[in-house]
Structures are given as structure tokens and as C-alpha cells.
């Protein structure tokens, strides 16, 4: 294996950025998801529109916001509204169907359902997390969601401790049967791999593994098994992608560290 000249964070941001296309409306959260959105805008999808659940649309991101409530999302936007308008934009299919969202979670299951609420019993949790925020709404409304995860056994679980944001629920069309539109998490980007949700079965499979990682190592870091038969090695970030990411997207190294 060659010496890596990029970090896993950079790899993850670029892999997510590549999912974003021109014309997409990108729902960005905080941290690495913000960085991925900025990378897409500066590298491969200059005409994508970044927006925030707080109500800012197409902000001029001169400095990376560290929270969706950061005043940096308000500068140069097309509109500074509020939460109701932001979520209505996603619930409304005319605009909502163009949205690609980037989410994170404490736990994910094979169907792309997310837990951002609690570990242990909900009423007396061992670890309490922030809760849904807009995550449940986004996962309910929009057709494409990227989930950022660390590839660890305690995070890729057989059964979620709490289902905050719906993916394919129990698979086999149960999402639609519950009353949800098609959508939810369809791509999972980790520090080892890119996983996807099969649109037929609703189950996760391994699509790409990073240089230096094998499908076996990936499976060893999950509680459940997935189909690895279609897996190929991921294409690492190019020089151009890395340079733009470092110099244009996060020159203060707020997320890259």
C-alpha cells in the first residue's frame, strides 16, 4: 500500500462531494457534511444550491459555518427565512425531490435507519445524544440522503437502540407502507467504505472500499453482514480535489483539523 497523502476525513468529504450533482439542492448539517457540500460546490457541482434547516438558501459561504445557526449561513443568501420554510421546501415535492441531504448518526442499521437520540433504554439512557433536530424530517421527505458514519461495530448495529430517522424501516416496501415517500438514506460514507442501499431489497451493500482496506476488514467492523460481491476499490481524491478542499473549502482547517 502506498503512503496516503490524504486523510480519511478528506477522503470522506470527497466521496460525499462526488455524490452531489449540478442542479441538486444540498441540505447540509454541521461538521464534515458542511465540508462535503462546500467541496461539491467548489469542485464538481458549481451549480448546486446549499441550504440549511434554519432557513438560509444559497448562502455565500466565505467561512465554513460551525453550526447551521452560525451567522455565516446568513451572509449573501437568496433568502433568510426560518425553520418552517426550510422544512416546507423539503416536504413540498416540487423542490423536495431535488434535495440531497447529508446526515450523521450514532447508529445505523442494514436498512439505513438512523439513531441520533439515545443508547440504551430511551427513558433511562446510558448515553443521550442531541436528538432528531431536522434529521427525522429530512429522512422522511427527501429522495436521497448521504449518511456519514465511522465504521465501528457499535455503530453498524443489528438493531438500533432508538429509530430516530427513517430509512427503509424493515425493508421490502415497509417504508412506503408506513406512509413515507420513497427516500431516506441511500448512501453511507464511512472512514473505510462507501455503502449503498439496494433499491429493491432496501438493504445495505458494499459498493466501494478505500485503498488499504479489504471487504473483510469492513465486515469485521459491523454487527451485520452485507453483500460484498459488487464491491470495487474506491478512486482516491485527485490532486485537484485535494487542493480545492484544503485551500478553498477549509483554509482555516476548522473541520479538516
Amino acid at each position: 500500500m502506498q503512503t496516503q497523502d490524504y486523510s480519511l476525513k478528506e477522503m470522506m468529504a470527497i466521496m460525499a462531494a462526488r455524490e452531489i450533482k449540478n442542479g441538486d439542492i444540498v441540505f447540509a448539517g454541521t461538521g464534515i457534511s458542511m465540508l462535503a457540500a462546500a467541496a461539491a460546490k467548489n469542485i464538481n457541482a458549481p451549480e448546486c444550491v446549499i441550504f440549511f434547516e434554519t432557513g438560509a438558501i444559497d448562502s455565500a459561504i466565505e467561512e465554513l459555518p460551525l453550526s447551521v445557526g452560525d451567522p455565516r449561513v446568513m451572509y449573501g443568501s437568496a433568502s433568510n427565512a426560518g425553520l418552517l420554510e426550510a422544512f416546507a421546501t423539503m416536504q413540498n415535492r416540487i423542490t423536495g425531490d431535488k434535495v440531497i441531504a447529508i446526515l450523521g448518526a450514532a447508529q445505523i442499521d442494514r436498512y439505513g435507519n438512523l439513531n441520533t437520540t439515545a443508547i440504551g433504554d430511551y427513558h433511562q439512557p446510558d448515553i443521550r445524544f442531541s436528538g432528531s433536530g431536522g434529521g427525522c424530517d429530512v429522512a422522511s421527505f427527501v429522495p436521497r440522503c448521504i449518511a456519514f458514519m465511522q465504521h465501528e461495530k457499535r455503530k453498524f448495529v443489528e438493531k438500533l437502540d432508538y429509530l430516530t430517522s427513517p430509512g427503509q424501516l424493515q425493508g421490502g416496501g415497509s417504508r412506503e407502507a408506513a406512509g413515507l415517500r420513497p427516500g431516506g438514506v441511500n448512501v453511507v460514507i464511512t472512514n473505510m467504505a462507501v455503502m449503498r442501499i439496494d433499491s429493491e431489497s432496501g438493504e445495505m451493500y458494499l459498493d466501494r472500499y478505500y485503498p488499504g482496506v479489504t471487504p473483510k476488514i469492513i465486515l469485521d467492523n459491523m454487527q451485520f453482514s452485507v453483500d460484498v460481491s459488487k464491491a470495487k476499490q474506491a478512486k482516491p481524491p485527485t490532486e485537484t480535489e485535494l487542493t480545492t478542499l484544503r485551500q478553498k473549502c477549509d483554509p482555516q482547517r476548522l473541520i479538516l483539523g
Binding site: 434547516e53 426560518g82 425553520l83 418552517l84 422544512f87 416536504q91 435507519n113 437520540t117 430511551y122 432528531s132 433536530g133 431536522g134 434529521g135 427525522c136 424530517d137 422522511s140 421527505f141 432508538y162 429509530l163 430516530t164 430517522s165 427513517p166 424501516l169 415497509s174 417504508r175 408506513a178 406512509g179 413515507l180 415517500r181
Partner: peptide, 29 residues
Amino acid sequence: SNFMMSLRFLAGAMGVPFMPTLSGFGSEI
């Protein structure tokens, strides 16, 4: 969720007992 809480305030502001949404089916919320 954030949309649910925002809608709950909107319902209060409008003087109606509830607001509808398509969010959350299947969630333990």
C-alpha cells in the same frame, strides 16, 4: 423533530389544535 416543534408553535399561533405533516412515520419519535 425540528419541523414538528416549529409546526406546534405555528398551530399555537394560529389557534388550531394541531398541524399536519408527512414527517416521522416509522420513527420512534
